[in-house]
Design a protein around this nucleic acid. Structure first.
Lengths: 200, 200
DNA sequence: ACCACAAAGCTATTAGTCATAGCTAGAAAG
DNA sequence: CTTTCTAGCTATGACTAATAGCTTTGTGGT
């Protein structure tokens, strides 16, 4: 029996492809081994187990997402950067639904590479906000809103949470416009922001 | 051996409790049967299977979420309603993490009850937006942004996506303030909104 | 009071998943 | 040509969902 010539990278990339095809929750070691032409236990020569594979997959997907959004933002700032980053983010989720779900996995503090790519991905948001002059404590709140809006929209869309599929592109543009307006008027410190909503 | 006195409602409520305790993804029929003091196959006398149970759990959770946000909004409007609905939403997710994940399941069109509660849950968002004078096509975009922002924030928070836990409450208040501002200035038709972001 | 029957529980079994132990054979280094 | 490392394998075990078929319980009709 000839060897398949596997290595950890090949296995993870095949897992990414499989996740995109059948869905992240249907990604299984048995099917992955089948696609790679080996028996299931052979995979354990390259990855520690199913959970470790998911973690590596998450790292891969987060790195790709960070790279694409970073590329999109290159040479742009302000509303322009906001718009292209948001569209690149959603585009990635559309093209790689399985990877996108994997990217949502919380970074394991004991995995420095995973932590590093997660910080790179979040860094794109901070770069966009810098174009609006938002920094420091205020940027933490603003970045959280940015991530929440994008992730919430994309994940609701992916799970079929929006009834009418026709207007989704327009709704997304509208979301971007609202974020743009919010960031133009963003309070410079979050302490001030707290005052605005502190009702009785 | 005395009977356990189970029925579909008891099983689903126990599943909800178990999901909140151990996490939605660790909810298993074996453990559920164990908690209820019966053997695993006995559950099949009350629910059709694991998937049907998850669906009923989703219906239960969505109904509870709709009820709590509706109650919170009672007698309020505008920024006041926005604020209490958002806080009720996040509070539910904190108190019932397993149920909250279950509530994200896409409603099955062949399950009228599930569809009905899902519409009730979304209806709360439309009621809030009506307080800002937003209706018709524009309300679809606005409601999607509302849901995306809330769900995105809560799910990122739940998965540990926010590095610094201290400021999360303040970030959420800031998110609410930004939504309030966006809705105050919301364009009356989404066609106009599209123009604002249609860059070259 | 009793019998019949529907429902609720059980044991036993099958299929699919992740995982580990231990063997075998291919490839490369000396 | 031999030695050694390792990528692959078979075999096995634990856990999960699911189904079949039997037994018991509780209840309703006579």
């Amino acid at each position: 029996m000839p060897r398949a010539g596997l290595n950890p990278q090949v296995v993870v990339r095949a897992a990414a492809q499989l996740a995109d095809e059948v869905g992240y929750d249907r990604l299984t070691l048995a099917e992955l081994a089948n696609r790679l032409g080996v028996a299931l236990p052979s995979l354990y020569k390259h990855v520690k187990g199913a959970d470790a594979l998911m973690q590596k997959l998450s790292t891969l997907a987060t790195a790709e997402l960070a790279a694409e959004t970073t590329t999109a933002a290159a040479g742009r700032s302000g509303a322009d950067a906001l718009r292209v980053v948001a569209h690149a983010y959603r585009s990635y989720a559309h093209r790689h639904p399985g990877r996108y779900v994997a990217a949502q996995r919380a970074p394991d503090p004991s995995d420095p590479e995973h932590v590093a790519v997660a910080e790179r991905a979040v860094g794109v948001a901070y770069a966009v906000l810098a174009g609006y002059g938002i920094s420091g404590t205020a940027a933490v709140d603003a970045a959280r809103m940015f991530r929440a809006a994008l992730h919430g929209f994309v994940s609701l869309e992916a799970m079929g949470g929006f009834g009418l599929p026709r207007d989704v592109d327009r709704s997304f543009d509208q979301l971007i416009a609202a974020l743009d307006m919010a960031y133009r008027a963003w309070p410079s410190t979050s302490a001030q922001a707290g005052e605005l909503t502190a009702g009785p």
